[in-house]
Design a protein around this nucleic acid. Sequence first.
DNA 1: AAAACACCCAACCGCGAACTC
DNA 2: GGAGTTCGCGGTTGGGTGTTT
Length: 247
Amino acid sequence: MVRPASIDKNGMRSGAWSEEEDNKLRACINQFKNHKVPNWRLLPSVAGLKRCGKSCRLRWVNYLKPGLKRGNFTKDEENLIIQLHNQLGNKWSAIAAHFPGRTDNDIKNYWHAHVAKRRNGSMKIRNLAQEEQSSDSNSSTITTGLNQNTPAPSKVALLISQLGLENIGVFESNADSDFNPAAAAADDDDLYQHKFFDEQEFDHEQVCSLLDWGDLSAAKSQLDFMSEPVDKDDFFNINFGDVLWGI
DNA sequence: AAAACACCCAACCGCGAACTC
DNA sequence: GGAGTTCGCGGTTGGGTGTTT
């Protein structure tokens, strides 16, 4: 799992750290623990390490520093990562600041290994669905009522929160049996949002209000992405998967 | 049993910001 | 204020390990 240790032409080591090197680094940093920030450039020679300062810093920050939490991320941690990523983007150090004991590298790795992968998977499914829809429309006149614009995930996440649906529990889905609506919404997970909202019962007036759509008649004008005109009375019959995909 | 593949994460690299002279 | 140096961050890689075929 770790790159094998090697020595370059200048005698500097790279790759996996040995226990002896870890001990030297720990001892050196403990010796100078009164200094707020170690001088990483000088540290290797003081510690007797044939490593560059950058490598020492990385080893300390990501692996040796006391208080680091190891092991799997909890569901709560994952949800918070998704929420913070939605707000901050790829600011891994800023996100990591909310997780005592977790490093930016941990969170970055977790994101790429778990969250981003799932997101990419769902986007692939969506693209396939769109391709199918596109090819269908070439051979027939079927309309789906769906707007293909990119949704506003933060708005959807906010809606889920305001409707109190974050802890709704496991949701049956062919694509993911461990579905979390808040996570999916924050993750721009369109298909999941769509399916989820189609199968929930909502207070339509409350949803209009939360989306700043005003009253029901004002809400009609917000639904111009639907393929068919939406009558005030029909509003109660539309499914929110379509609506939320459209916003 | 073993080859192929996928996953995960420690470590590396490049770049921009911050700092020093 | 500008040049050189150091630090920290984010993107990426590489390879050990687990899983599937």
